[in-house]
Design a protein around this nucleic acid. Structure first.
Lengths: 146, 146
DNA sequence: GTCAGTGCAAACCCTTTGCAGAAAG
DNA sequence: CTTTCTGCAAAGGGTTTGCACTGAC
């Protein structure tokens, strides 16, 4: 342990602390999954997380990947992005922001909150409270337009 | 035929014309499905369409419901609304508008385009064109908040 | 030692597909 | 008559679950 680079150690510790701050016990598998998400800060489907995590020698099972991503989402560590009926994406960025979704490539890209803001929400239906606002701008690749 | 009420006849004819205008051959099953959508103008999941259509005596198979909804969506007759990873909703309203989605009840409610407008889109990624903008305001029922 | 987490395989559920029979023009 | 559509059942694919084993504290 003492011989690892500082950045590695600090990164692992940061992620462990992050999990604890969200009331999640940092097990080995959860750390591996969290590191994939938080070190690249990209959007991942469960399947992509599974692949990335299992590139190294330590493996995590499919059930654990799904259960862990669900747990992270419930505890506000990541945000679920629903843009495609065939799979859920997980976004390590939980701040207010929106998304481009390229329907040709399946690529999901952040829109900075300063670039697109919803100023005032319309009046909500009675007896309801807003939980979040998702804006998805669906894109096609130019060459792929029929 | 001559003995039906005018409203019935005109409604059936309207729906048939609507299908033809979108390049869709109006078969019996397609008409039944289209009437469910366009006479109530609500949002339906495929399963809800299936149930509504099959309340009468004439039945439509599950495969046909799915194939038909997909066909309607491809031909711009209805709009697919992706708000829930477990099912797709179909919206007979294809004009510019957005949605409230009550995550507790699964209810999907239109937001009139005058009540929420996205004025200027952020700069799109290079080589892409915008295909559509979806805004979803996720709601919880007040009493259901934990 | 106790309780929570993990892995495997099977179950689930929505959706799609292959193919034979039926309907539309 | 030819082509397209429909229905059934089976397959597909992402996700969840049941349960015995493992690991955390």
């Amino acid at each position: 342990m003492e011989n690892q680079t500082d950045s590695q150690v600090s990164s692992k510790q940061d992620v462990a602390r992050l999990l604890r701050e969200h009331g999640i016990l940092p097990t080995q598998q959860r750390l591996m999954i969290a590191r994939v998400l938080f070190e690249s800060r990209q959007h991942y489907s469960a399947d992509q997380v599974m692949t990335s995590v299992n590139e190294g020698r330590d493996r995590v099972s499919k059930a654990t990947v799904y259960n862990t991503l669900g747990l992270f989402a419930r505890n506000g560590l990541v945000r679920e992005v629903i843009v495609d009926p065939t799979r859920v994406f997980y976004d390590p960025n939980t701040s207010n922001h929106h998304h481009f979704y390229n329907v040709d490539t399946g690529e999901l890209i952040d829109i900075d909150s300063t670039d697109l803001q919803i100023n005032d929400l319309p009046k909500l239906p009675d007896g309801t409270v807003a939980e979040g606002v998702d804006v998805i701008i669906r894109l096609r690749s130019e060459e792929a337009v029929n």
